[in-house]
Design a protein around this nucleic acid. Sequence first.
DNA 1: TTGTATGCGTTATCAT
DNA 2: ATGATAACGCATACAA
Lengths: 337, 337
Amino acid sequence: MAQPTMQQVAERAGVSLALVSLVMRQAPNVSDYRRQLVLEAAAELGYRPNVLARNLASRQTSTIGVVLNDIHNPFFAEIIDGIQAAFDEAGYRVLIGNGKRSPSGEAEMIETFLQFRVDGIISAGATMSMSSIEAASESTKIVVVGRSSRSQLIDSVNTDDVSGARMAVDHLVELGHHRIAHIDGGTGAGAEARRRGYSEAMTDHGLSAEIVTAGGDFTESGGYLAASELLSQSNQPTAIFAANDLSAAGALHRVEDAGLIVPDDVSIVGYDNTALAAMQHLSLTTVNQPRDELGRLAVRFVLERLRDKRTDSVHHMVAPTLVNRKTSSRLTTGAAT
Amino acid sequence: MAQPTMQQVAERAGVSLALVSLVMRQAPNVSDYRRQLVLEAAAELGYRPNVLARNLASRQTSTIGVVLNDIHNPFFAEIIDGIQAAFDEAGYRVLIGNGKRSPSGEAEMIETFLQFRVDGIISAGATMSMSSIEAASESTKIVVVGRSSRSQLIDSVNTDDVSGARMAVDHLVELGHHRIAHIDGGTGAGAEARRRGYSEAMTDHGLSAEIVTAGGDFTESGGYLAASELLSQSNQPTAIFAANDLSAAGALHRVEDAGLIVPDDVSIVGYDNTALAAMQHLSLTTVNQPRDELGRLAVRFVLERLRDKRTDSVHHMVAPTLVNRKTSSRLTTGAAT
DNA sequence: TTGTATGCGTTATCAT
DNA sequence: ATGATAACGCATACAA
């Protein structure tokens, strides 16, 4: 397992250590002749740069750490694509860490990345405290995505969840619904804003008396349980707005279990527009978060700090859109209040 | 962004560099008094070990790289859980790399991990050539999971896909089906064995004349297209066995699009038993791969090589099981051949 | 128990 | 264009 070093490459090529280093870093001022010599020696030995030594000496890693709140949530997994594409272009490698849906899990991954001295960190859907993240920002460039923030220290990229939630409610109201319940996302990222958007929109429509929120947690089972709670009430909702697609799927199942038809008896609207919602078997009406764009913007912000030395924080909001699929429909007159 | 070093901690605590190092590594032979001194100084400075320097000096990283063929495929994402849990116990940190569903993407991640000199690599669902993986095994301990292998150099953990596919066919035959088609996984990991198990089982049941395979690629859209192909044939299948849950979901949708009822008109069986299949709205009959066990075994094998210095390769097969849900049912007499 | 000195595999500065 | 050589931040024999 002992790996060849530059020293050995140098000896084999009959040149100095420094020359090998120059070749490995694609330096311009090296004669073609010696460059070939070095390259051949390296290939013969199966030399591979030791990134630990390189990073230690150069004081930079060209590596970005991405910590996902939950690798199982398609929303976070889909943000990765934009991040990876953008960093590939910029010449950075990206390492992924799983936060295991807990603040401590996220904190551990951030600590690990800091110990590795990564050049930057993107935290997707962080549930850990903002102050902990700010503490980490003393050591590296860090931007949060999918979570609102007004921090003076770190950048954020986020969907305008308040208006996203409003879109969901507006859509349902247009379809004639009044008894619109909300399954929220508990303490998850974005849950608070969606809750607020829901309440505001209901109030604006003169439906403040109909506001009903059941507690969820961004998981399918959480959505199932929350829907149970909603169905057992005397005044069953004719429509449910769930804080994300996963919980919408859970609610959908619970409603169908009760012998009700979606959307005829109950309309359901999700949030995120993940691949799950797009699955045609589900075909969930939902609020789209432009995941690729979120990822790319996050990358742009860390690059701005890295290359342009920007120091003031920026908070970017992207606009959600409603995706009308098959789980929502006009309220049938028989079911009206 | 300049980080404090041990040197600074040492000066502040009024002790030697080496003493600080001992404290940081939780060495036993340090007086409580000085240990406190060092710990306090470190805390005051916000000292954080530089893992690059530490790993360089100690020649080990206590880090494992996990490369996922596709972070979006729930099967791979779910293997991570077992891996992380097992490595947490063993005191290793795990970094995740996304192979982006391509051999070159996987190769790049492996190269990155090798440059980081990780102590071991677990590759889940690798589609890159076995010889490339073997080449990497000269530099670190590497085990593949979810992909068959008979390599003399590297370990593998895999579900017995041949018998898993057989289970699916046996199940359908028991339900009275004869015209059982297969949507395969193309060049994906495990696809070949599942194709073989399907053919063998069909032959064993005297149904070799009914063998029909449509090309898929382990994605939902691939399953949808393959199902289209199957439905357009003169002799429509009464049952479809898809090589994974994702393509089964795609097929399910295509069948329903055709106005057919699942399972009344067409039964569908998937493979993997991911959270997707378990989603009650889908409720897919499928073949279970024990993902947690697969992950834990993979970890065990790299630890055996790391700690017990095992050098001969081991190939472990775990047994699949059939999970009977709602997408398969007895063939109705009217539809019989 | 604590300190000194050397090396880990690079990068980078300064000569030549 | 190429070569010495001093960092980089830490671990680790070895000495005290």
